[in-house]
Design a protein around this nucleic acid. Structure first.
Lengths: 84, 84
DNA sequence: TATATATTTAGACAAATATCTAAATACTTT
DNA sequence: AAAGTATTTAGATATTTGTCTAAATATATA
């Protein structure tokens, strides 16, 4: 839970999730969407991956990232405990 | 949205919310539930308050904190956009 | 009014974080 | 095999964050 909230506590990472919500993308395509260096994006992807919010798969020289919506379910459940 | 995720990105603050979910508490009562100094808890309360996740009301020399579940709705909606 | 209690504000500090550039690794193509 | 493309790793740095102690503010009570 800690890792998930940590991962979500960054606007760039949340935007990455929104991009991946639409379709799978390579690390480079994701980086192109931001004014941030590729290494920094790579770092953000690593944090999202450690939180299990995304998965990656190697495809030739590309690494394709996908969103893992099942993990969002955990956050959803946590939030729901506050609904009266 | 940034403030909300920032506020939720701390185990102590999430625990404070869970305490307040049960009932309203004074700053001192909240502090007593943690092995953290009162000024630090006061700081956490400030962050939660800035995110509108809690509200406070002065009652004599005490300040009573309450949870504001309506803000959780925003997080809920954000999360739901990822559900397919 | 003086003292005790409740809480916050101020200031300091160590740890965590987001970013960068440079270098390394891995794959593809010529 | 060499050169080019995609991505990550390493190391550095500035900023943010969580924590503390000491001091300030506000209310209650003797």
């Amino acid at each position: 839970m800690n890792d998930i909230f940590k991962a979500l506590n960054d606007a760039t990472r949340r935007e990455i999730l929104e991009l991946l919500k639409e379709k799978d993308l390579s690390a480079g395509e994701i980086a192109d969407a931001f004014n941030i260096s590729k290494p920094s994006i790579s770092h953000h992807l690593d944090i999202l991956k450690r939180a299990d919010l995304i998965t990656s798969e190697k495809n030739g020289q590309f690494i394709i990232y996908s969103i893992n919506t099942t993990i969002m379910e955990d956050v959803l459940q946590w939030i729901l405990t506050f609904k009266k």
